[in-house]
Amino acid sequence: METKKKIALITGGSRGLGRDMAISLAKNNVNILITYHSNANKAEEMVNEIKALGQEAAAFQLDTANTKSFDAFIAQITNHLKEHENYPNFDFLINNAGTALYAPFMQTTEKQFDEMVNIHHKGVFFLTQKALPYMNDGGRIINISSGLARFSLPGSSTYASMKGAVEVLTCYLAKELGDRKITANVVAPGAIETDFGNGRVRDDAKTNAMVAQMTALGRAGVPEDIGGVVAFLCSPEARWVNGQRIEVSGGMNL
């Protein structure tokens, strides 16, 4: 009898780190659901790329800052799964979607603060809450944090505060979901060359050189440094890893 494939839901899975997570999981024989914020064409390209690897895939629009849309979103993906898998549940939730904010503490506005709360903390909290009834027992939750929750760089106080909140939340999820054998872990990337923050690490030579200088392995990260770690945490080999923060930064600020 053929073993049923696992299914992963990755927010912000059409580009950057989320894209590599999706590819890495697909290479591990996992079917993929991704969300995108606005670029439907890019998301469809990602779906086709995953299908070319031999896995099923679908993309759904979601603004993770808009908690009022979550019920309709969950209904959309579970209906899709019932239609294509004959079963509404999935196995892995990767809360990856996010945006950057670079603003000194004294210049950060309440509007900017609220936007970061909604995207990086409130959205993660309530999307996970809405998703849990449709997650299989023995599943995995992976929340994406940042090296900035451990070390401080001026201008990131708001963003990093939200990631710190998500790290604490993850420990509570690990504790409270233990009876369902669902693990919850944090992956905290260092500075990565993507379009995140308008491509600051990737495109600004001064920033890139600064990151390389403060990193033990002597370079900025690339998306391919992260996806395999997420895929590992969704593998049977990671079944005993729970409530942990795994920083994937090449050794920044040691």
Rank of each mutant, 00 (worst) to 15 (best):
K5F: 05
A8W: 08
I10N: 06
T11Q: 10
S24M: 08
N28T: 02
L33Y: 09
I34N: 02
T35F: 07
Y36S: 04
H37A: 06
N39H: 02
A43F: 04
M46D: 00
A57Q: 04
F60C: 08
L62F: 11
K68L: 13
S69H: 00
F73M: 05
A75Y: 10
Q76W: 00
T78P: 01
H80L: 00
L81I: 09
L81T: 07
K82T: 13
E83N: 10
H84C: 01
N86P: 00
Y87R: 09
P88H: 02
F90I: 07
D91H: 13
N95Q: 03
T99Q: 10
A100D: 15
P104M: 11
P104D: 14
E110D: 14
E110L: 12
E110Y: 12
M116I: 02
M116F: 00
F126Q: 00
Q129F: 03
Q129W: 00
M135G: 06
G138L: 06
G139N: 05
R140Q: 14
I141C: 09
N143F: 04
I144T: 12
G147P: 09
L153D: 15
S156V: 10
S157K: 03
Y159I: 06
M162F: 01
M162I: 06
G164W: 03
A165G: 06
Y172W: 10
Y172T: 11
L173P: 01
A174N: 04
K175W: 02
L177C: 11
L177Q: 14
P189Y: 07
G190K: 10
D195R: 10
G197T: 11
G197S: 12
N198M: 07
N198G: 10
R200I: 14
D203R: 15
D203Y: 14
D203V: 08
A205N: 12
K206M: 09
A209F: 02
A209C: 06
M210L: 15
V211D: 12
A212P: 04
G218F: 13
G218Q: 08
A220K: 06
I226C: 00
I226K: 05
G227H: 10
F232K: 05
L233F: 06
C234Q: 07
R239H: 09
W240D: 07
W240P: 05
N242W: 06
G243C: 00
R245D: 07
